[in-house]
Structure formats: structure tokens, C-alpha cells
Computed example of a mutant assay.
Amino acid sequence: MKGILEVYYNYFSNELKSKAFYAACFGFLFFLIALFPLRNTVIRFRRIVIPSYIRVLLVFLYLIAFILTYPRRFHIDIGVQSGSICLVFSVLLICSKKSKFDFASVLHLIVLAFAILVGERVDAMMAVILHLIFDKNSENYLYLEEKISTKYFYPLMGGIFGLGILGELLRADRNFNMQYLLSSVFTQSTTVDVSFIYLTGWYYNLKHGVNTDVLLNFFFGFLPGEYNGISSEFNFTEFLRDKVMANPGGGLYYTEGIIAFGFIGVVVYGIFLAFLIRFIIVKSNKNENSLFFNMLLVLILIMQLRIQWYGFIYFYTPAFLILVLSVLIKINRIYLRN
């Protein structure tokens, strides 16, 4: 254990930590149970046809957007919140794959490895995995491989984990010593931070009971305004900063459910997320030419770590951009046909 959780670990009672642990287990268990009926589902959809040079251009645009999203890591003064743009570029590149290792996909994998190395692990790790488990068949369909060869799966997981550890060390600007290296292997800083906020959610619930104010941000967080969005006072992270204590940001997805509903909220949020994924998969498979649901499926898979670690609020903006993009692509197809 390290970081803020190490400082405040004894601040939380054993009863609180026990409830938090079992609730997390129940939430994840119901999440898996709700997804269980899809275990034999074949996921496939029609590939988006994009010229190779455009796909290469998308990789470079992804790199530019990534640098602008994290300017301090590149020692530049200009920064733009373009994380959602990065996600959309990743979705387009995966949905338009010509083969598992076509030139643009390899370029994208290199840039994603670079992103992991400089500390942006959440979306980049999942994008790498999706690149390697989606393939194209002779009918121009992308499909999710049912069986993944262990020859490259375990080295892949080990490589991603190693890059993540190295990225954490570089991000923390620490010397490479064995003690800190072992600490990074067993207690990832992001995991520690979000677990701390999860525990503060339980602290609030046990002391003050439920508070449904945070649901305003869950249902209306996609709308502009001072009361909505990531920085809103109703975002559970900001809510806990104000009501309990300072925190490093983020927080487990289930924390909002604890504040709003208590123990049962963890189960409710787990089931909600699972049924949303099921709905998107079913809609995508039902109509393999459904551009919006196909891209939305790839998006929600890429964002699984971000949603689980930081909350559902981060899904709104890229999902809206995917909707706009799918409409523009359809309009362009109609124009070309006419």
C-alpha cells in the first residue's frame, strides 16, 4: 500500500473496510452474472471502409490530441481537454482495421504503447487489447476472436503490465530502486487512489446515510452547466471532497451507488453497467450494419477501465461524439450514392 490510502488507512474502521470489500465482491459478481448469458455470443459487425492514408492520418491526429491532453508530461504550455477525441480516433482505427496488423494498426499500437509509457494507461491498455483480439474476415466483417492463442496472449498481458509499471515510475519521477518497483507491482497508484475514494464513500454512507444528490450528475451529467459534468459539485468525487475530505480525484464507479443507495447501490450499479453492455452488444449483432452501435460497442469496451476506476460520467462525451460521427458518415454515404 502507498500514497493517500497508506496515510488514511487506519482512519477507516475494520467494519467499514469489511463492508466495502464484500460490497465490491457482490457488485462485480452481479456484473458478471448479468453478462453470463452472452458467454457464447459471437460479436461481429461490418468494417468501416476508410482509405489507408486516412487511417495513418488518424494515428497522427491521435498523437497530437494525446499530447494536447497531457501537455505537462511533454513540457509544453498549451493544453486542450481532448481525451474524448483520442477515444473516437481509437474507435475509428479499430473499426476500420484491414487486418490484425495492417500498417496503420501497427502505428497505432506503437503510439498506444508510448501513451502507456508516459502514464496514460487506462484507455490505451484496453485499446491495445481490442486491436489484438479483433480481426477481419474475407467478407469484410470485423469479429471478436473466440479463442486467443496463449502464445501471444500471456506475453501481451505481461508487456502491457510492464509498460504500465514503467510508466508509473516515470510519471512519479522516481529512481529505479527495488523497493519502489515491488511497491508499484503490488499497489498500483491509480488503484490505491480510487480505492481510497471508494472507502470515503462508505465512510459518508455509514455516518450520514444515503444522499441521492449525486444522481443529478449521473442522469444529467451529459448536459452543459455548472451543476453537471466532471467538475460538478454533484459528481461523487467532488461531493466527497466537500463532505468528507480531500482526495486525488477519480473513484470507483460503484462509489456513486453507495452514496445514493448504500450497500444495494453497488449491486444496482453493477447490474446497470452489465445490462448496458448487453444492450449494445445485442443491438450491434442484431443489425451488423448499425454504424452507431458498432462503434459504441468498441467505445464502451475501450472505456471499461476508465468507467470502473473513475465513473460513468466519462462515457457521455465520447458517446455523443460517436453519435455525431455516425450521423455524418451516414450522410456522406447517402451523398456518395446519389
Rank of each mutant, 00 (worst) to 15 (best):
M125I: 09
V266Y: 01
G167T: 08
L93Q: 06
L273F: 13
L181R: 05
K17D: 06
S326L: 04
V88W: 00
L169T: 06
K151H: 13
K136M: 08
Y11P: 05
F31S: 03
L223H: 01
F74L: 10
T191P: 00
F21G: 12
D77T: 15
H208K: 12
E15R: 11
L169F: 03
K243L: 05
A115S: 15
N294T: 09
L299I: 09
V185R: 01
F263L: 13
Y269G: 01
F315M: 06
F272Y: 11
L291Y: 09
I307T: 11
L130V: 10
I334W: 02
K330T: 12
L132T: 12
G159H: 01
E15D: 15
F153H: 03
R44M: 09
I54V: 15
Q188W: 02
S82I: 13
F263V: 14
S82E: 11
Y62T: 08
K2G: 12
R55M: 09
N294D: 10
F101M: 07
S195I: 15
H131A: 06
S18T: 12
L170V: 14
I129F: 14
E6Q: 14
F292S: 03
Q188R: 11
T212M: 06
V324A: 13
F176E: 02
L93M: 12
L68Q: 10
V324E: 03
